[in-house]
Computed example of a mutant assay.
Amino acid sequence: MIVNDSLLCPSCPPRHKGIWARLWIISYGGLLKIVTGSILTIYVVFCLDDGMVLMNKKYPPRFLYPKEWQHLTMFILFTLNGCVDVMSKNLLPQRCVVLEKGTLVLTFYVLLLLLMSHGQDSTGIELQIHYLLIVVVFLLMLVLTIELWTPDTFHLLLIETFLFLTMGSWLIQGGFILYRPVTGYPWQDDDISDLMFITTFFCWHVMINALCLLGIYGISSFWHHCYCPSLKLMESKEAPHHKGTTGPLYKLLREVEQSEKDDQAPLLSKSSP
């Protein structure tokens, strides 16, 4: 973001030709989503002893494993979002950022709906963890929705990255709290101290992630301004060229000049004799 003019489609060309040029433009994020989502989908399907059964065979029929089916839906959406990223960046003739953002927004709309019902039968610690996760997902959904109209805004991309970091770190923390407590003793739902420390830990995640982003940006900015003078010199040389020869106004002026020349050509040919 510091070096390139475009935040979503960086203008840095591949350093090598051939296979290295093709490897440079691969959507590694999309591939990671596909692999991770597929592994988690397979795990959810085969983790149950009797498989992913939708309804029992008794009368009256009842739906089975509601949380597992919601997990399966989340992971399938995650995989499909990775497929869209790979298709947009590597298969289409031109990258479609709106398609990528739209699919991501749709994924988070569905994720928010699933999370709203996911913790309905939860109480105490588990419910508090889900509430805090819903807050992050809701804010992330709003930011991603705004980015549909302004996808190349630095502040929105920074907030999006921060919310993604908070969501991921809190999911890891919530997994340890619910299933593998560090102390070896389960958290108590009826203990007000445990409930209060859930919110305290979440605030610590917010502060740590903010400091992480600040450190990354500070180190990158310092490195760019102090140890990359060639990049700054190249940008200063290319800036007048880009400003003077690009944009719709420049194209419009060229078209007007061309039309004026075409109109004047018959007059010159008649007056020449």
Rank of each mutant, 00 (worst) to 15 (best):
S271N: 11
K57W: 02
S259E: 08
G247N: 08
H225K: 07
R62L: 12
G168E: 01
Y179R: 04
L114C: 14
K17Q: 06
N90L: 07
M207A: 15
E260T: 03
P60C: 14
P61C: 10
A265G: 01
L111H: 03
L139N: 03
W69D: 12
G30R: 03
V98P: 00
I134W: 01
S272A: 10
E257S: 08
C203F: 14
V256R: 12
E68F: 14
L148F: 10
S38V: 13
S272W: 13
V53P: 03
K237E: 14
T107C: 03
T200P: 02
P151F: 11
K57N: 05
Q188G: 00
I198Q: 03
T183Y: 08
I34G: 15
I26K: 14
C47K: 12
H225G: 01
V35L: 13
Y65E: 11
L140G: 00
P60F: 14
Y217G: 10
S27A: 14
T150M: 08
F201K: 05
P66Y: 09
P151Y: 09
S169R: 00
M1S: 13
W149N: 02
L253C: 06
K89D: 05
D50K: 14
L40F: 10
T123W: 15
L253Y: 12
C228E: 07
K251V: 08
R15S: 11
L77V: 01
I198S: 02
F201G: 04
T199N: 03
Y227I: 10
V35F: 15
W170G: 01
